[in-house]
Amino acid sequence: MAQMKGLFAVLAVVAIVLLAADSSSAVDCLSGTFSGPCWAWDGEQCRRLCREEGHVSGHCSASLKCWCENC
């Protein structure tokens, strides 16, 4: 009986990990329309262009690129 409870606990943890991995599978991608370096003050333009491309939003990275969210 104790082995069944242990097996159930392991299966439950595996299921939770798989569900969490599936929900965070959305990745960011580079904007196809933003040109030039993406400075902090260009954030609103980056977000707008990403939304126009059909993505949720966008942000400027430390590498000065415009990344769209949930591609």
Rank of each mutant, 00 (worst) to 15 (best):
A15R: 10
S63H: 11
K65Y: 10
C46L: 00
K5P: 01
M4F: 11
C29F: 01
G6W: 04
S57H: 07
K5N: 10
V56D: 05
Q3E: 13
N70R: 08
E53H: 03
C29R: 02
L11W: 03
F8T: 05
W41N: 15
H59M: 06
S24Q: 14
R48F: 06
A2V: 08
D22Y: 13
E52P: 02
V10F: 12
G58W: 00
T33F: 08
C29Q: 03
L18Q: 11
L30H: 03
Q45D: 07
G36A: 09
G36K: 07
A21E: 06
W41L: 15
T33A: 07
L30V: 06
M4Q: 11
L30S: 03
G6L: 14
K5S: 10
C68F: 05
A20H: 06
S61M: 13
G32Y: 03
M1D: 10
D42M: 14
A12I: 09
S25N: 09
G54D: 07
A15I: 09
S24D: 11
Q3S: 12
S23P: 02
F34H: 01
S31W: 00
S31A: 09
S61I: 11
Q3K: 08
C71A: 14
V10I: 15
L11Y: 02
E69S: 13
F34Y: 04
G58C: 10
W39S: 08
N70C: 13
E44N: 08
S57P: 03
E52Y: 06
A21C: 09
S24T: 15
G32K: 14
S35F: 05
C66N: 05
L18R: 10
L49H: 01
M4E: 04
T33N: 10
R51G: 01
L18F: 14
C29I: 04
L7Y: 07
T33G: 03
N70G: 04
K65M: 13
A21M: 13
S57W: 04
V13D: 03
W67T: 02
Q3F: 11
A2P: 02
L30F: 07
G6Y: 05
A20K: 06
S25H: 12
S23I: 14
S24F: 15
S63L: 13
D42T: 12
K5D: 06
L49P: 01
C38T: 05
S24H: 15
L64S: 06
C71G: 13
A62V: 14
Q45G: 04
S61G: 15
A2D: 08
E52L: 14
V17F: 08
A9E: 10
A2T: 10
I16W: 03
W67C: 01
A62H: 15
R47P: 00
S23D: 04
V13M: 13
C38I: 06
V27Y: 06
C60S: 04
E69Y: 05
W67N: 01
A40I: 11
S23F: 13
F8W: 14
A20G: 07
P37D: 09
E44A: 10
T33V: 14
S61C: 13
A15V: 07
S23Q: 12
